[in-house]
Design a protein around this nucleic acid. Structure first.
Lengths: 236, 236
DNA sequence: GTAGACAAACATGTATGCAAGAGGATGGAG
DNA sequence: CTCCATCCTCTTGCATACATGTTTGTCTAC
């Protein structure tokens, strides 16, 4: 097999991580614990605790924790245990700013590009009659995320998409929490519809400023809910 | 392994690991091997090979390799060895585009911001007489990188800086190679000086378009050199 | 000669044991 | 009581042994 063919074959193979792997299991469980505030920001814990609780040895636990560390969820203290990364609202502001930068770049590239096919598809979800709208707020949150992800994907730069994914994932620590009211759902529909229309008309500037306002609103909302949820978790 | 052999192994290191951690050592060595084309894109290797060569056990090797996998340098094949990620020129184009997005955002934020102190510091390096300029091309490449990193840092968004760092690092796989001529060094001085002056005058649009041209030039140069080096490495 | 079964070699995945260092507990001196 | 040296416990870092699955080469049947 030639070098080139070999390289091709490598790309064709499925990703290394198998779903059934213990490392993945530990990784997912610990991440869920962090997301759902069973592990609070600042909490300390040890590899053995996790290993005992999940009934595996320390080896896969270590690999999972190092992965989480690399992604910024936990810290390792040299020979002195692990801790959940404290909440840092400044960081979240920065993540939102970064997110806006990335999505704005995507919007501009799309408006300059030749093809709006992938954007057109969004019409089926966001430009629909009231009766066809989703009302469940968790489901709506997922749709919202998909909207933004689709836009970034449409810019056809996988590296941009990868980074955007990372940012979204870290924001999702709070985002994923249930939204208290449904009024953001309606507003989201309105705002997305406007952005979408601007995109379809290739009005980059308009789309960007709408996007900026939309993300700012979202940021403020998420911030408010997070503080509330965090306080509630702390008291129990 | 006996104590004496272990001591020898440690002394064997050319650089001497700064952090005593074996994981870091393996991580750095393997990355260097990839950077310097001792490990070619598409090459396959095993954990044991690396462990034997670096005189450590498989445990730190595995942690280092998973780190490299997470960063996109290598792939793990389930129970079937590892391989170096194949070169993908499309990916590099995308990385350069992303880099431009990030740096442009930084420039705009700086120009809108209140404080140019960190930018002023760059004058000491880039706005100097010809006689004070660096001529060594490797050293110049490092200075060039520092220029861009400083700009991003000055935007005061650590998340933006982190992502930018990632992107730069992945570009550096090729960047780090020796530059064939020195003429890019002089051009770099000129271009950086112009960008710097625009920044100091808070001319965001000017700075951005200069930056874009500068990065485009760099991209073209790096691409050319990479293809050349890669072909040379493949033939040996 | 060819196809298929099968086993040996080998790769990673996981568990476990030991070593080294960080941090708190303890006890004595002031 | 306070302070400091010392020890002891606990934690991670690393090495090694074992488990599990993949690949590959060989041997046999046809």
């Amino acid at each position: 097999m030639s070098k080139a063919e070999e390289a091709e074959a490598v790309l064709d193979e499925p990703q290394g991580s198998i779903a059934g792997s213990r490392v993945d299991h530990v990784y997912n469980r610990v991440k869920e614990d962090i997301f759902d505030f069973r592990l609070l920001p600042g909490d300390r814990f040890t590899e053995s605790q996790v290993a005992d609780r999940l009934k595996v040895s320390r080896t896969p636990v270590r690999e999972a924790l190092y992965r989480l560390e690399r992604e910024g969820y936990v810290f390792v203290h040299f020979r002195n245990g692990w801790s959940v990364r404290p909440f840092d609202f400044v960081m979240f502001e920065n993540l939102y700013e970064l997110r806006l930068v990335l999505e704005t770049a995507a919007v501009r590239k799309i408006c300059d590009g030749p093809d709006l096919a992938r954007i057109e598809e969004l019409k089926d979800v966001w430009l629909v009659a009231d009766a066809d709208r989703v009302v469940d707020s968790l489901q709506a949150a997922e749709l919202d995320e998909a909207f933004h992800t689709t836009i970034v994907d449409a810019a056809e730069n996988p590296e941009l998409a990868r980074v955007h994914n990372d940012v979204i994932e870290r924001i999702r620590i709070i985002r994923r929490l249930d939204f208290t009211q449904g009024y953001r759902v309606e507003r989201t529909y309105e705002e997305h519809a406007k952005i979408l229309q601007a995109l379809l008309r290739r009005r980059a500037d308009t789309a960007c400023s709408l996007l900026k306002a939309h993300i700012e609103e979202s940021r403020a909302e998420v911030r408010k809910i997070t503080i509330h949820r965090l306080q509630a978790a702390r008291q129990s």
